[in-house]
Simulated assay, not measured.
Amino acid sequence: MKIALHGLSLKHEFLKDVRALFKSLENHGFEIFVTQQFDRNLRMHGKTGLKFEVLENPKDMDAMKFLISIGGDGTLLDSVCQVGELETPILGLNTGRLGFLATVSTDKIDEAVEHLATENFQIENRSLVSLKTKRRLFDGLNFGLNEFTIHKRDTSSMITVHTYIDGRYLNSYWADGLIVATPTGSTGYSLSCGGPLISPSAKNFVITPVSPHNLNVRPIIVSDESEISFEIEGRAERFLISLDSRSTSVSSEMKFKIRKEKFFAKLVKLPNYDFFDTLRHKLNWGFDMRN
């Protein structure tokens, strides 16, 4: 059984965990491949005698049974780009910080690999947001697991985002920016801007303004079957748009449409994992901070 490993960086203190992961995968008969990025990370540490092959062609991912993302939530978001429409199931090994998406701790490596080998897991289909423009952006990777964001550049003045739902006018947001988040992304940037938490299985998008200048404006939840379109005004000629952690500068003349992507990000859900347990743990719910 072939398995791919991906990581954006590798700190020295987690090298022992990577060795443990390789050993566990080998003991369970997995054939190990790594992405080119993770190969570069391993080379920085001298490869440490690990045995693997490098995925030289992105199409080779199609032969992989799973992809293990080694890092934090940002690495898992990048892993979704590595997989794309192939929908290879992704498991997140958390060597980062918060870990809403990368949910497997380093002390559970053997247990996680055992579940993969025995197929004792479930697959969660996480919806993606898809960006439609007349110009090719983001090297064709026009989808994101967390959110699409429109934002002013640097210290420039606020922008006005005219927003439409299925062609019907919704609102003009005078703000520093606007976020369209998936249920998965509701625990990210949208949350920090006052957006609601949404269960991963919900079929919604949430539109959240960033520092709105009209204070009666609040986040709004819409169906993920909707098409959301935007027209931008501002004193600056250019502004920023982003899909998850990837951003680019574009002209104010450009128009954008957002829809749900046709394919999903498939996340491996191991036994005893529960989204609401994760919320309580990460956000300290049910914990009396006064004591």
Rank of each mutant, 00 (worst) to 15 (best):
2 K>F: 12
9 S>R: 10
17 D>K: 11
19 R>T: 12
22 F>N: 13
24 S>C: 13
30 F>C: 14
31 E>C: 02
32 I>D: 10
34 V>D: 08
38 F>R: 07
39 D>R: 05
39 D>Y: 11
42 L>M: 15
44 M>Q: 14
48 T>N: 13
55 L>Q: 07
60 D>G: 01
62 D>C: 04
63 A>K: 15
64 M>P: 06
70 I>P: 10
72 G>F: 01
73 D>V: 04
77 L>V: 09
83 V>K: 11
91 L>C: 08
97 R>I: 00
104 V>T: 15
105 S>I: 00
106 T>H: 09
108 K>Y: 09
114 E>M: 10
116 L>M: 06
120 N>L: 02
128 L>E: 09
132 K>T: 15
138 F>R: 13
149 T>E: 10
155 T>F: 09
156 S>R: 05
158 M>A: 15
170 L>W: 06
177 G>V: 02
177 G>W: 01
178 L>E: 07
180 V>L: 14
180 V>A: 11
190 S>H: 07
192 S>W: 04
193 C>W: 00
209 P>V: 01
210 V>A: 03
211 S>T: 04
216 N>W: 03
220 I>R: 04
221 I>H: 05
223 S>M: 10
224 D>P: 09
225 E>R: 12
226 S>C: 15
232 I>Q: 09
237 E>P: 00
238 R>W: 00
244 D>V: 10
246 R>A: 05
247 S>G: 12
249 S>C: 01
255 K>R: 15
260 K>I: 09
263 F>T: 06
272 N>C: 02
276 F>W: 15
279 L>S: 11
281 H>S: 14
284 N>F: 05
285 W>C: 03
287 F>W: 02
291 N>H: 06
